[in-house]
Amino acid sequence: MDDTIPPVRFDTKIAVLIRDDLATWQRLNATAFLVSGISTAAPEVIGEPYADADGTAYLPMFRQPVLVFCGGKELLTAAHRRGIDRGLTMSVFTSDLFATGHDEANRAAVRAVPADQLDLVGLAVYGPRNAVDKTTKGARMHP
């Protein structure tokens, strides 16, 4: 690794907020789905493809860290409202999605519930660092 590359401070932030009462597999599953939404809506967050010393090619990933937080149901509801009010790019994962098996069913499950009644188990937000910090206020880093 080249230690001469200076650290970068990003003006934007990617944060995932996961409900703290989920099973481990649910936390991991929801996190994976949530960040996939950010990558498609904000292509500027994707870096260049990777390659190892042998020239084996790998997919590009986020160009900046993804911070994963956790909190209770009420915190997720408040963060969701703050994210909407700030106009942040956001993906959501509701409890209903654990029982669906494909994208069309996922979208139908979310579409069937008004925003203020979603049973959120996770959300991901992307935007200006300060706005994301205010949106996730009260959450703690995932252990």
Rank of each mutant, 00 (worst) to 15 (best):
H142L: 12
K137E: 15
P60V: 05
D96T: 01
D119K: 04
F62D: 00
G83Q: 04
D2I: 09
A105T: 02
A41M: 14
H142S: 07
S39Y: 05
L75D: 08
T12K: 10
C70A: 07
T77I: 09
V8C: 08
P143V: 03
F33T: 08
I5C: 07
A112M: 04
L97H: 05
T94G: 08
F33W: 11
D52V: 15
D96P: 02
D119V: 02
R9T: 13
D103M: 13
T12M: 07
I5M: 08
N29G: 10
L28Y: 05
E74C: 06
A30G: 04
C70H: 08
I84P: 00
D119E: 14
Y58Q: 13
L75M: 07
P143I: 07
A139C: 06
N130C: 07
V121F: 04
L120C: 03
D3L: 13
K134D: 15
T4S: 11
N106V: 01
D96N: 06
D119Q: 14
D133P: 06
E48P: 10
Q117P: 04
T40S: 13
D116L: 02
V45G: 12
I18Y: 00
M1W: 10
G87H: 04
G47E: 06
V16Q: 02
R111L: 15
F33M: 13
V121P: 00
G87Q: 08
A30K: 02
F10H: 14
L76V: 07
M141G: 13
D52C: 12
F98W: 05
A42G: 10
R107M: 06
S95Y: 02
F93C: 06
N130K: 14
L28D: 05
L76Q: 07
